[in-house]
Nucleic acid binder design. Structure first.
Lengths: 251, 251
DNA sequence: TGCACAGCCTGACGTCGCGTCAGGGTCAAG
DNA sequence: CTTGACCCTGACGCGACGTCAGGCTGTGCA
């Protein structure tokens, strides 16, 4: 295959293949009389490995040493790539969950501490520092500032949206106090209403997402407090209702 | 907070923050009399957004225009980030699956075509080109070359490993021909034996992974052919047994 | 047979996102 | 009042290509 064909197949530019040739990472196994690069099937296999390792963030020089190591058989590479990809999958899933948590926090007017926002990036988070930073940035100042910013970004119908949320929450509280079981159809209908309201006004919220959010209502104390201020036991009640509703949708 | 503290919290270097300051992407909201950069809570919030978009592959200049766009409120950013992260999650999951398929292909001495290997990278794959390339690189030459490479990488106990696989496959074929149902405990035990053999000799193969692989036994004709050469209906039988076994492990 | 035009070649310089000194001021602790 | 950790501003370097420039090659078709 010519360089252009390989480039199209692999989704890279010709320049990239030139580059890989010059640095000795991937030299085509042949050339035509006119000097055209000719790539064999084996070359394509190597390119595939190169692109996988590159995608995983390895510098090209390291990719070369990995692939040229005669003691590492292909299965070894596959195992390593599999492990690295699974790590990345976990990390991405964690980031998705973090963003979802932030969405919900914003929805409810709660602001996360900087530590929480960054915990996915820091990787290591020195323990002793944590307490100190918590004190400096916790609750008071950061909270107030963020609230101010929220107001600044607010649009005209913000009030209406908040009222809608209020309405559902109030009816949930009433149901709780009337003794309605959180896994009853009536409770699930309220949960579903809440979910659709979020989807309409904030972000597209699938039943699975909603279930995940429901869990944080009891796991994260600030979310818990938000509901408990309205009625004792409401956080747990809503959490259960939301999850029951999600299970119902899934079935 | 001073630049060093912010750097530690966010998991970046001081140099990076200097850089973001100079290019105007993130300028600290204050300075001390001595010229020290002082970051506010709002600055940290912006940094968080910057790092998320950076992680998602945006060039810094584009990140700046995104964040400085006055018409885009924070919720808008969260929605976009959520969508992009989910895309990435799907893509990574697809890559994991592809690597698992390759592991299994190698295990069974089957070589995937270059098109299959690259389908995750190409993104678009021109239709007309596909058939042509298939012809050039399909079955014959690529297959033979790859087999040769596989032999070259082979280690001393390769023979033993192959024999083990042979043994299990032969017993599966015997069970099929003896009329053993593929979802019977006996069949599931054979499937489990196969799974543990893969784990020992090739790569760590969870029941879920094994179930996924089992599906390809009937979905990919080359895997199917591998089993059908031994006995008619064996591919479907093994696939069912493997999935039944995975379900049993999961319960 | 000639020509147009897509595709290939080799330099060579530019870019982005920082890493890495160099040379010098700042600050809290002892 | 010194020591050591931390901060500042240049300025150069680097990895992984992008992007011309200037020129050769290969092929369909008039």
């Amino acid at each position: 295959m010519n360089v252009g064909e390989v480039a199209a197949l692999a989704g890279v530019t010709v320049r990239t293949l030139h580059h890989y040739d010059r640095i000795g990472l991937l030299s085509p196994s042949g050339r035509t009389a006119a000097g055209y690069r000719r790539y064999s099937a084996a070359d394509l296999g190597r390119l595939h490995q190169v692109l996988l390792y590159r995608e995983l963030g390895f510098p090209l020089e390291e990719v070369a040493t990995l692939l040229d190591d005669p003691s590492a058989d292909p299965a070894e590479h596959l195992r390593r790539q599999h492990r690295l990809l699974r790590d990345r999958l976990d990390r991405t899933a964690a980031m998705v969950a973090a963003v979802e948590k932030e969405m919900e926090a914003r929805h409810m007017g709660i602001d996360l501490t900087p530590e929480e926002k960054f915990e996915l990036f820091g990787d290591w988070l020195p323990e002793e520092y944590e307490a100190e930073a918590q004190e400096r940035w916790g609750e008071t100042e950061a909270w107030a500032q963020s609230q101010a910013r929220t107001r600044a970004y607010t649009k005209d119908d913000w009030v209406r949206v908040q009222a809608e949320g209020e309405d559902v929450e109030a009816r949930m509280a009433a149901a709780l106090q009337a003794g309605v079981a959180p896994d009853s159809p009536q409770a699930m209908d309220l949960a579903e209403e809440a979910r659709q309201q979020i989807s309409r006004n904030f972000y597209d919220c699938s039943p699975e997402m909603h279930a995940g959010i429901g869990r944080t209502y009891v796991e994260d104390e600030r979310f818990t407090a938000h509901y408990e201020r309205r009625a004792a036991g409401l956080a747990q009640w809503v959490s259960t209702a939301v999850q029951a509703n999600a299970a119902r949708q899934g079935a």
